[in-house]
C-alpha cells in the first residue's frame, strides 16, 4: 500500500499531536503542560486544515491557542507558588492508566468493527462560510441555540468575574 501525501501528512500530524498530549498529561511542571497543550491545539488545527475545513482551523487557533491558553497562563500566574504538582500515589496512577488504556482499546475495537467510508461524501466546500452563517442565525436552523450560547457565555463570564473578584 502506497501512502499519498494526505495520509503521510495525517500520520505525521497525528503522531506529533498524540505525543504532545501524552507529554502534557505526564508533565511535572504546569507551565510545560500548558505549552504542550498549545502544541496539541495547533496539531488539531492542522488536522482541520487537512480535512478541508479551514474555518474551523482558524476558530481552533483563535479560541484555544489565543484564548484558553492565555487564560491558563494568567491563572497559574495568579496562583504563584503552585507551579509543580506532587504526584498521586502510584496505585491510583496505575488505575487511571488501566482505565484510559481500556477505554482506548474498547473504542478502537468498536471503530474497527464498522466499515467507515474512506472518501468524503462530497468534495471540500469552497467559501461556504455564508451558508454556515445563515444556518446559525436562521429560524429553521440554529438561531435559538445560537442566542442561548451567547447568553450562556455572557452569564458565565459575569459569574467568573464575580467568583474571582478580590474580596
Amino acid at each position: 500500500m502506497t501512502l499519498g501525501f494526505g495520509q503521510i501528512a495525517f500520520l505525521v500530524i497525528a503522531a506529533l499531536t498524540v505525543a504532545a498530549a501524552l507529554a502534557m498529561v505526564l508533565a511535572r511542571h504546569i507551565f510545560h503542560a500548558i505549552l504542550l497543550m498549545i502544541a496539541v491545539f495547533v496539531g488539531v488545527a492542522a488536522l482541520y486544515v487537512l480535512l478541508g475545513v479551514s474555518f474551523m482551523a482558524g476558530m481552533q487557533l483563535f479560541i484555544y491557542v489565543g484564548g484558553v491558553s492565555v487564560l491558563a497562563v494568567l491563572a497559574i500566574m495568579v496562583t504563584r507558588g503552585f507551579m509543580g504538582d506532587r504526584p498521586r500515589p502510584a496505585r491510583s496512577t496505575y488505575g487511571a492508566a488501566v482505565v484510559a488504556a481500556s477505554v482506548f482499546g474498547g473504542l478502537t475495537w468498536l471503530i474497527l468493527q464498522v466499515p467507515w467510508p474512506s472518501e468524503p461524501l462530497v468534495p471540500a466546500p469552497q467559501n461556504d462560510l455564508a451558508v454556515l452563517g445563515q444556518v446559525l442565525v436562521s429560524r429553521a436552523g440554529y438561531a435559538v441555540p445560537f442566542e442561548l450560547a451567547s447568553l450562556l457565555l455572557f452569564v458565565v463570564l459575569l459569574g467568573a468575574l464575580y467568583i474571582a473578584r478580590e474580596r
Binding site: 498530549a21 502534557m24 498529561v25 496539541v40 488504556a101 482506548f104 473504542l107 471503530i111
Partner: peptide, 9 residues
C-alpha cells in the same frame, strides 16, 4: 479516541 483516552488519564 487516543486523545480522549489521554485526556481521561
Amino acid at each position: 479516541a487516543a486523545l480522549f483516552s489521554i485526556g481521561l488519564y
